[in-house]
Nucleic acid binder design. Structure first.
Lengths: 229, 229
DNA sequence: CGACCATTTGATATGGATCAAGCGATGTGG
DNA sequence: CCACATCGCTTGATCCATATCAAATGGTCG
């Protein structure tokens, strides 16, 4: 269920009109098509984009802001599956239902594309089919990397997380993290206290700098690389 | 690199002749095709099937025995990514290289199919394309489940593992585990001692029975389900 | 039988969780 | 424009689950 019921109802109208238009048969490249086929939709900070168990009828692409997917266990523990930044595609499932829930971390705009439209397109265009498969494959690689993070020590996890974020932002070494310490903790399988302490230690050893709690500058890459495994 | 160099050279010949035969265009169902296209290959216990970083030119299907995929971290810690049983497909990568290594847990026979042959087939047959994508999707779901295991307590992990194995074997409640305690530990991110102790506790609480160390009978499913989260 | 390897069991150590308090930034109402 | 509430983050003290170290047991094969 969407907490942002207004947003959903608005989008329903949007998708109803936009998604019917069939893209030209000659066009290739999934990227271009998604832009054409998608309806834009906005979510406020912490608004739910979709919930675990809901039919996975749409695929999403981040236009602005960022998104987290997560699952809450029976006893309340929350595991964050992934963070999605601008340009990232999420919500592409192989089954009928979403296996995780998705929320906007900060106010976010996303493209919403009908899953069935992509599949139909893939039917006629091998290149699109290949790219959809590749998308699932890249997601698989990401999750496997996540597993490797989760078996490491707290420090290795935090450093691994920072390096992962830095690799994605690729702004030399300055990170503006959209997510809270709690989000990071739930992504890494740690507590917020351990994440905070570890960052402090990294700052004290001059590996990173923390101008503000959300801004992190990687000062010593080689040290961080060493600490990450 | 294969430790079983003889096996590899034998198979090279096999694949060279078998994989050239193009299956009839009309045929559907990936399953059937893999049997037709594949060359059979045998591996001794603990023999390497492929190594991390090697070109992922082949896809594999377990005919008999079982297989583990794993990665060894810089400091020697080993993480097992998955166990593959009879009928399971493994080694299907989206990138150029295998991201994990694969070994036979027990003496095993596997079908070996050229990746490029499957891709070529998918090019002409949408149904095959769909099934290859679904295979990657199912793998993704499995790995996401694995992540959820790794954030739980030791007991929850072990119970989760048992239930997962039971679901796959589906022989009411009697499991014949092919893998060692060390394999289980490396799959669950625990030590062999913790796995052993946890099994003992489960036995003492009448949740399971351990006729031998590799044979496990699930005595009380509802108790186990309760303990798994 | 004896050697070897996998597994279990026991004793102790420790990394990260938990419980608790303090601090800084941000926003809101008076 | 300031006082105060709130929220996110940090820091401190203690506890506990699991790792580590060590030894005993059991099962398998020559």
């Amino acid at each position: 269920m969407l907490t942002q019921s207004t947003a959903r109802s608005v989008s329903s109208k949007q998708t109803a009109s936009h998604l019917r238009s069939v893209p030209p048969v000659g066009s290739h490249a999934l990227e271009g098509n998604m832009e054409l086929m998608g309806a834009s939709m906005s979510f406020n900070r912490n608004a739910e984009i979709y919930g675990e168990g809901e039919p996975a009828d749409y695929v999403y692409k981040v236009v602005s802001g960022s998104v987290r997917t997560y699952k809450v266990l029976a006893d309340g523990r929350r595991q964050i599956g992934a963070f999605y930044m601008v340009g990232d595609v999420f919500g592409l499932e192989s089954g009928e239902e979403h296996t995780f829930s998705a929320e906007a971390i900060s106010d976010a705009k996303v493209l919403v594309i009908k899953h069935s439209a992509l599949v139909a397109l893939a039917e006629r265009d091998n290149e699109v089919a290949r790219q959809l498969w590749a998308l699932t494959g890249r997601e698989l690689n990401r999750v496997q990397g996540h597993i490797l993070l989760l078996i490491k020590t707290a420090q290795e996890r935090v450093v691994g997380f920072l390096l992962e974020m830095a690799a994605r932002a690729s702004n030399n070494g300055a990170l503006e993290l959209p997510m809270s310490r709690q989000d990071i903790a739930d992504y890494l399988g740690l507590t917020i206290e351990t994440v905070s302490r570890t960052l402090t230690i990294l700052e004290n050893t001059a590996a990173i700098e923390l101008p503000t709690s959300r801004r992190i500058v990687l000062r010593n890459r080689s040290a961080l690389n060493r600490l990450s495994a």
